[in-house]
Amino acid sequence: MRIECPFCGERDHSEFAYLGDAGCARPAPGAADAQARFVEAVYLRENPAGAHRELWYHEFGCRSWVQVTRDTRTHEILEVRLAGASAAP
């Protein structure tokens, strides 16, 4: 599997470290149902057969966090963009 890093170009996935689901927002800790929401955010994740947005860290490259959309059935990389403040949501 090769990932097209927005800065470095196409690199082997072994240069990257995998974090996981990119669509997982941290719940508000002060909310009344915060505990239930945290359980959901931490443990109850979607496991799609198909396109999955996920965060990878280009550890042995430009050290950027990237948001990768990957087909979990074929490992086809559909989109890669820089994560973080400068990236569009």
Binding site: C8, R11, S14, E15, E59, F60, G61, C62, R63
Partner: peptide
Amino acid sequence: VAQTVAEHMA
């Protein structure tokens, strides 16, 4: 310029 890995070294 390339930043990459050689024998596990950055």
